[in-house]
């Protein structure tokens, strides 16, 4: 154990996703792809999406893969993100992002205020480490760019 409140940041689930990220693979023939870069640390992430339209013309993320180099926080966050949004509609993915963004940037908001996060709540400790918020958000900003089919490099600045 690390002590000094660090266990709050590096929770077991975070460490697990950080060292063994899920969906860490490029997709063949993705419908959209985006590239993210954190100039503060040089970390990079790519997000690939397969998007399908279902009844009522709702767009669904039917497959997601990511690849990148980063710290435990950025890899864990991207890994958990892929699990959270796979199979979700684009609208729901945007709602999850809004809640996640709020959670990691506001340390004084109770987790009770968020309805869309599930397991992602283990990353709430990031809010106490301002220099690490960008790490947690890099994959997410890249996902949002991929959803908008924005091919410009996503920066965390």
């Amino acid at each position: 154990m690390l002590g000094s409140g660090l266990d709050d940041l590096y929770q077991e689930v975070v460490m697990d996703h950080g060292s063994n990220p899920r969906n860490m693979n490029r997709l063949n023939d993705p419908d959209s792809t985006a590239h993210g870069f954190n100039p503060f640390c040089g970390d990079i992430v790519d997000v690939d999406l397969i998007l399908n339209r279902e009844g009522n013309d709702i767009e669904i993320i039917s497959d997601i893969g990511f690849h990148g180099k980063g710290c435990a926080i950025s890899l864990a966050s991207a890994s958990m993100m892929t699990e959270a949004v796979e199979g979700q509609s684009v609208n729901q993915a945007n709602k999850i992002f809004a809640d996640f963004h709020s959670m990691v940037t506001n340390k004084n908001v109770s987790l009770d205020n968020y309805n869309n996060l599930g397991d992602l709540e283990v990353l709430s400790g990031v809010a106490n480490y301002p220099t690490r918020i960008k790490c947690a958000l890099l994959g997410w900003h890249t996902l949002i760019a991929a959803l908008k089919r924005d091919t410009n490099t996503v920066k965390t600045e």
């Binding site: 002590g3 660090l6 940041l9 640390c41 710290c71 435990a72 480490y129 220099t131």
Partner: peptide
């Protein structure tokens, strides 16, 4: 095994200031 930023955060908790990045 450990990204420089994770090292930097943990060292900071111990009062040790180093630089991490490029």
């Amino acid at each position: 095994y450990v990204h420089p930023h994770d090292i930097g955060t943990i060292l900071d908790q111990e009062g040790i200031a180093i630089r991490t990045g490029h």
